[in-house]
Each structure stands twice: as C-alpha cells, then as structure tokens.
Design a protein around this nucleic acid. Structure first.
Lengths: 195, 195
DNA sequence: GTCTATAGCGTGATAGAC
DNA sequence: GTCTATCACGCTATAGAC
C-alpha cells in the first residue's frame, strides 16, 4: 500500500468516477472537494486532472453516462404488444433499473442545479426522451380505450415521480423483495391510469 | 440605499431567513456562502451572527419552520367522515400547501444530507408524523373496504411521492390551474388505491 | 446592530520535478 | 502518471470599533 511515485496503478480513471459518484451521492456535489475524491482513490488531487478537465465536467460525465445507460437499457428492453402490457413492462423496468443504481439516480435528480446552463439542457433533453416513452404508452392506451387519463403529459410525470420514489426507501435485503415492490407499484400504476 | 452604519433597519432577522430560503433553494445549501446571504439582505456577513448562531442552525430553522407549518396546517384542516373523503381532503390539501411553498419544499427534500445527524433525526421525525396521517387514512379505507392496498406503508410513500412531484413542474400561471391539477391528481390517487 | 478586519483553514486548478 | 508545492481566492466565524 501507500505508493508514493510512478504509474503503479492502471484503471485510475474508472476509480475516480466511482469515488466521485459515491461521494457526490452521499454529500452532494458542492460539499465534496477534489481532495476528498483523490483521497478515496488513493492519489493526490493534482493527479485527478490527468483524467478529467475539471469538477463540472466530472459531474456532467456521471449524469450523462447514467442517462445514456438508461436510454440504452430501455431501448433494448422487449416491447410487448398493447398499451397495458407495455405499461407493465415499463413499470417493472423502471423500478428494477433505478433500484440497481441508487447513487446515479440520486445525483441525476439532486445535482441538476449544479450543472451549468448548457450541461443542464443536455441532461434535461435526455430525461425528456425517457419521459416521452411513457407518455407515448399512455396516449396509446387512451386510444385503445384501456386507459383514462385527462392529461397524458401530467400523468407521465405523476407515474414517474411515484416510481422513482421507490429509491428513497427501498434497500436490498429489507422487508420487501424487489419482485414484491414491483408487484405493489404495478398494482397502483395500473389502477391509477385505468379506464 | 447603501447604509453604512447603525441599526437603520429592523426586521433584518426575517429578511435573513427569506434570503437564505431563496438562495438555498436556488443554489443549494453547500453552494451558498454567508456573504451571499448577507449581500442579498444588504448587510455585511458579520451582521448575520446577531441573528443566527451558525449556518447549520439556519438550515435547520428553515426546515423546522416548514415542517411545523405543515403539521399545523394539516391539523387545522377539516377532517371529513369516511376514508374516501379524508383521502380526497388530504390530496387536495397536500397539493395546495406544497404548491404555495416551492422553496421550502425543495429545501426540505434536497438538503437533508446537509443536516447533522441530530438535526436530521428531528426533521425526519416531523416528516414521519405527516406520513402517518396518510397511512392512517389508507388503513381506515382498507377496513371500510373502499381501498385495496397490499401494504399501506408503501402505498403512503407512493402517493406522497406522486403528489410532491407536482412541485417539479407546476408553475402558477402555467397551462393548468391549481384546481385542474388537483382534479387530475385526485383522479389518479383515488384510482391507485381503489378497491 | 452593523461595521471593518482578520484568524484559520479549505478550495479548484496548475507547474514542474521525477 | 503521480508527486509536491503553490497560486489566488473563498470560506465560516469572531473581535472590537462605533
């Protein structure tokens, strides 16, 4: 341990991202110093700048990676027939995906204020694309006559807020298993938009 | 303008609280300096300490005041007969109360990390009392047979997450009026827990 | 009650040795 | 690629004049 010189370590880059992710989620972007991140990785603060241009870009990269992962995963997810089946697939996907990445989700919601305007617009654009997928499902269900929502845009935000709320209390190994959580929330989502 | 000496201003205390509230909500507790707060009030940073012992207590006071207001308001609210009517009253109350205080709500949710452990426990205790009111309504509805929720505790958190989500998009003067918003959300809440 | 000044420390980022 | 050292500045909080 306690290396003092030389490039004895590869994969420092990913370790920086991991440490920043964890520390930002725990203490908040503004409250975490570059020295803290460096300490968690086991290097001096100056060494971080071999991998990232600055702190702001580090935050943006973490958020962007999360949103890209989300959009890739939802695109890869099977897309069943019928709005009801699609809504169920979306609900279960959302809960599972988000419960597996509590730190990323926390940062993506809580640290938007700390993005500069350009970076904020980037992330909000990605989030909008995800929300539009649910909105499309709801509109399809209204057309099919299986859903009754007076305002699909608002219903989208309501459902996503409810589902993302799982992350505020769910802990792996707690009272409820993830399949049980999925079941409870799917029951509520289904009924909330039902015709 | 530009006073330089003397106690030419009363009500500096409340103005400090207002400025801190607005700045914390906009930029985050950790990102806001005492100098910024003082500047918004129109005094020097040192003068703040005539009114508050330190920055941490300032944050706690803002949160505590919000939670006390919330609990007082919900206690004063009419309590109709029957779980269905009580749930409707709670839903409309929650939306209205929270939409009127976007900054307080934002801080109360986002800045929990920046409370020290003792202060965190205080605020979480107050929040728990509020959540318990909704949980009681849901349990009553299950007994009455008007609601079907497999887990009242989780359903409570799901409903509150959905309702508090209004604050992320609702703006006074926007596309939807507050009564319209209430109507849309009450429709979804009612159905989500329906038997 | 507010001011100025400052103590004591931490910040993000950079330069140059190795 | 990491180190040490440092720049230039900002931070919270306090002391003492007025």
């Amino acid at each position: 341990m306690a290396r003092t010189q030389g490039s004895h370590s590869d994969i420092t880059g990913p370790r920086i991202m991991d440490a920043a992710l964890r520390l930002f989620a725990q203490n908040g972007y503004a409250a975490v110093s570059m020295r803290q991140i460096a300490g968690a990785v086991g290097v001096q603060a100056g060494a971080l700048y071999n991998y990232i241009p600055d702190k702001q870009t580090l935050l943006l990269t973490l958020m962007q990676r999360h949103m890209d992962d989300l959009l890739s995963a939802v695109a890869d997810h099977p897309r069943p027939e019928g709005a009801m089946n699609r809504l169920e697939a979306f609900t279960r996907f959302h809960i599972r995906f988000h419960s597996e990445r509590p730190d990323e989700v926390f940062i993506a919601y809580m640290e938007l204020r700390n993005l500069n305007p350009e970076n904020f617009a980037t992330i909000e654009g990605l989030r909008g694309r995800y929300e539009n997928m649910l909105e499309e499902i709801l509109r399809q269900g209204v057309e099919e006559g299986v859903f009754a929502v007076p305002d699909p845009k608002i219903a989208t935000l309501a459902v996503i807020a409810m589902l993302t709320g799982v992350n505020t209390w769910y802990r792996s190994g707690g009272r409820l298993s993830l399949p049980e959580v999925e079941e409870i929330y799917w029951d509520m989502v289904r009924k909330s938009v039902a015709a």
